[in-house]
Simulated assay, not measured.
Amino acid sequence: MKAFLKTAVAAAAIALAGTFAASAEQVKVGFSPEAYPPFYSQDSSGKWGGWEVEIAMAICAEAKLDCVLTPIPWDGLIPGLKTKKIDAIMNSMSITAERQKEIDFSDKYYNTPTAIIGAKDQKFDASPEGLKGKIVGVQVSTVHAAYAKKHFASTAAEIKEYQTQDEANQDLAAGRIDATQADQIALDAFLKSDQGKGCCDMKGTVAPDLEVLGPGVGAGVRKGDTELKDKISAAIKGIRANGKYNEITKKYFDFDVYGEEAQSN
């Protein structure tokens, strides 16, 4: 009987250890549960899809990580990462020096221009002079908010912050603001929508500012989580090399959103 109990206890310990080993590879990927097409969008059943969702899952598969999409409001993503509510952020978060004070980043997985859109009946460009006297909407806690405050605050009538980019787009369509700044691809998607087509057009891309806008978008991880960061960076290189990145990208874009060259962090 004692021998049986010892064997049973040993077997349970091995099974428990196996459970811990399996769960150690599970990664909670944080994202803000808001429509940001074509990167993130939700179907009628509530399932999330889009280019970034597919790329994130491809990265996880390549890295042999069991990833679970975990919704957290945008301004709670970095706090959630630091308090271990999530293990990584894959949500169009630009790599910036300011954010690198709090978290680490993988290599970039895309880099696209930053643009300004506005009402069709207003003629202006994406410069401080062009936005003189305008109300400019931006999403809170984004590089776009930081950029607008740095470059447009001295000439714009107001830099108005929103919890989501969709709210800024809605206010632009309603005429409550004059312009909004965001990723060009996301703004292009809005301009192709029924609402966007009727109200607004592209005013141009903003002048480069590497310090604020960063070298591209990467996966955010906790400070010191080098193992996960390296796995994700290697997986990004892997899906670029094996064609999976291009296979997914061609479903959404007719150009390579990756940018000129990789950035290591």
Rank of each mutant, 00 (worst) to 15 (best):
I185M: 08
A22N: 12
N242G: 15
E158F: 10
Q26F: 00
A61V: 14
F124I: 10
D194Y: 02
I117D: 05
F39V: 03
G238F: 08
D107V: 05
T19V: 14
K251L: 08
Q184W: 08
I14Q: 01
I248Y: 02
E161K: 07
K6C: 10
L5E: 07
T249W: 08
D87C: 00
K231R: 11
V136D: 01
M57Y: 12
K108G: 00
E211D: 12
K101H: 14
S106D: 02
S106M: 09
L65N: 03
S106T: 11
D254I: 12
F31M: 04
D171C: 02
S141K: 13
L65W: 00
F253T: 09
P208I: 13
I177P: 00
K160P: 08
D230E: 13
F152V: 07
A153E: 13
A15M: 12
K108T: 12
A173P: 11
A24N: 05
S45T: 15
D194F: 09
V68A: 11
P73V: 05
L81G: 01
E102P: 10
D104G: 05
K132W: 04
A88Y: 01
V68S: 13
L213T: 02
N246M: 14
F105P: 03
Y258T: 07
V29F: 12
G220R: 06
H151V: 03
V138C: 11
G130D: 02
G80Q: 09
G259Y: 00
I239K: 00
G49R: 00
A234G: 04
L210E: 14
T7P: 04
I59G: 01
Q184E: 14
Q263A: 15
K2L: 12
G137R: 00
A219E: 01
F31S: 02
G196A: 14
A157R: 06
I236P: 02
K85Q: 04
